[in-house]
């Protein structure tokens, strides 16, 4: 049963990502991407990482894709058709990617993966404890760094995006930290 679901998910992921890359309609592309990300979330659920799957759904599929669609709607007409890329470019990029993928997969198949036999620790409790543990094996510091990153990016985005024409105008709009 799980096996079949996995194959279905894989097929969805691969075909939709290919379509997303090839489609000439911008908005469709974004919708395909949404499909891919949702399927990946499904995969996370399948593998048993429910929290990660939920995050993938909310942040990625729910947040990022919405942001992208939003920006498409802001900057393009709905039925905008993109021109097809030149042949030479497609050929070079295609050859490069196919060669890369083949080499990569062969290498992966040739590698001996040894499983470490220990009891699995993936419930939400362990996850939370590891994430906020300041001691050995804990991820508190990265957590803090990510929060700084979010803050910095927010400042950056606001500074770039905010309209400004004159001093008086902008001092009222001011909303950075």
């Amino acid at each position: 049963m799980e096996k079949i679901i996995f194959y279905i998910l894989s097929a969805v992921i691969l075909s939709l990502s290919l379509m997303s890359v090839l489609s000439r309609k911008l908005l469709r592309s974004a919708v395909y991407l949404f499909g891919v990300l949702t399927a990946i979330a499904g995969f996370y659920f399948l593998i048993g990482y429910h929290f990660l799957g939920a995050v993938q759904l909310t942040v990625y599929a729910g947040g990022i894709v919405v942001l992208i669609i939003f920006s498409i709607l802001l900057t393009h007409e709905i039925d905008h058709q993109m021109p097809t890329p030149e042949w030479s470019r497609v050929a070079v990029a295609g050859a490069l990617c196919v060669a890369g993928a083949v080499m990569f997969i062969q290498l992966l198949q040739g590698s001996l993966f040894s499983r470490v036999e220990v009891p699995e620790q993936s419930d939400l409790n362990t996850l939370g404890n590891t994430l906020l543990n300041p001691g050995g094996g804990g991820y508190l510091l990265p957590f803090e760094v990510v929060s700084i990153l979010l803050l910095a990016v927010m400042i950056g985005a606001i500074v770039i995006a905010k309209q400004r024409h004159s001093v008086d105008n902008s001092s009222q709009e001011k909303q950075a930290p």
Binding site: Y139, P142, V145, L149, V153, V159, I160
Partner: peptide, 19 residues
Amino acid sequence: DLLMVFLGLELSTLPVAAL
């Protein structure tokens, strides 16, 4: 830790894009 390397890399890069 590689995670810190990666996060540091991103934190050092993304604000510069805004700049």
